[in-house]
């Protein structure tokens, strides 16, 4: 370790300690506000870099964490579990939990603490078996799309969601299509080929090939006190923005769009009925996803990919540039969920 040159940014109090790199999280981990988003994402990228680029063990301290947002919590789960799955020796990845009682309690009650505890792929699969709010799946049958979806639905059922309800039905519709989008778009063959070619320069370990292709991470819960249903899904595949750029590169009539900012490209990609497969009956999933956002008041859809941020709610669509470049795609729905009589619809 003492001979290894690794970055030790002061911003995260990074140092070599007990044979591993020790890093301290920002006090606020959130990707919704520009102020905290950059440091949140930099912190998570650094952890992944230590494990996969520098092949060193990491102690990830959340001891001084004072607040984490929903989307940030999913990215934390994605990063930590990816590192945990990606190493043979589980003791290489250590997580120190928050000292703040309220934050620790929230981590525990949300299922995040269980999701972050030490363990590799067996732990991740146990999360599915126990219908945890935080789940990760891949194309491997033991943790495939159907299994993860079923675990998610059972969890919602257990927490009082009434599925004989228009909003629940539309929510599940959107959720299903988002999971399918990961399968069909996030990890296409061209991306996997290019990804492996570049990654093999630094590492012989191919995460996706060795731990399950098409991996994604998600969290879903019923926020009873605020009457919300929340679903967030993340993949570190090609990303919607890169996918659209590839589509435009291969379509001469769209080549002028390649210089558009990521926020605009993301907006284009989210238009109804656009399918990168070019097959007419595909591309219907976007309608489900957007419907869940704009049908109900106090509900919204957020998508982040590349440098693009897209938000759609009952007031309309807003796209902005992110202060950091997110690998892959993150999609978030928050739906205002109130029990209703069918007669009121």
């Amino acid at each position: 370790m003492s001979n290894l040159i690794v970055p030790l940014p002061k911003a995260f109090d990074a140092k070599v300690k007990d044979g591993k790199v020790y890093v301290e999280s920002p006090k606020v981990m959130c990707v919704y506000s520009a102020e905290s988003a950059y440091m949140t994402y930099e912190f998570l990228s650094l952890i992944e870099s230590y494990v996969f680029d520098y092949n060193v063990g990491v102690t990830i301290s959340f001891e001084n964490l004072e607040y984490f947002s929903a989307a940030a919590s999913l990215l934390i789960f994605a990063t930590v579990s990816k590192c945990q799955i990606g190493v043979k020796d589980h003791s290489k990845i250590e997580v120190l939990f928050p000292k703040n009682d309220a934050v620790l309690k929230l981590m525990a009650s949300s299922g995040l603490k269980l999701a972050l505890k030490q363990g590799g792929i067996a732990k991740v699969r146990k999360l599915i078996d126990s219908n945890n709010q935080y789940l990760s799946g891949s194309e491997v049958s033991i943790e495939n799309y159907q299994k993860v979806l079923t675990a998610t639905l059972l969890n919602l059922d257990k927490h009082g969601v009434n599925f004989s309800n228009t909003k629940s039905q539309i929510f599940v519709k959107g959720m299903q299509e988002a999971i399918l989008n990961v399968k069909y778009h996030a990890y296409n063959d061209e991306f996997i080929r290019d990804f492996l070619l570049t990654k093999q320069v630094k590492s012989k370990f191919s995460f996706h090939e060795e731990t399950g292709r098409g991996r994604w991470w998600q969290c879903c819960w019923h926020d009873v006190s605020n009457n919300k249903l929340i679903f967030i899904i993340y993949d570190d595949g090609e990303g919607i923005v890169n996918s659209i750029k590839r589509y435009y590169r291969n379509s001469p009539e769209h080549s002028d769009k390649l210089n558009l900012p990521d926020s605009t490209l993301l907006g284009n990609a989210m238009k109804l009925g656009v399918s990168r497969t070019g097959i007419k009956e595909r591309g219907k999933g976007s309608a489900d996803i957007i419907n869940t956002a704009c049908t109900f008041p106090s509900s919204h859809l957020i998508v982040m990919s590349g440098l693009g941020h897209y938000r759609h709610d009952s007031a309309g669509i807003n796209t902005t540039q992110l202060p950091f470049e997110i690998k892959g795609t993150l999609v978030q729905w928050v739906i205002n969920y109130v029990e209703e009589n069918q007669d009121d619809i």
């Binding site: 599925f163 004989s164 599940v172 519709k173 299509e177 219907k284």
Partner: peptide, 20 residues
Amino acid sequence: DNVYGLGSSFLEESFGGLVR
């Protein structure tokens, strides 16, 4: 009814597929 929810991909392939 009494299922969790029906995605458009499922419905299109099931029913649209009958004609396609």
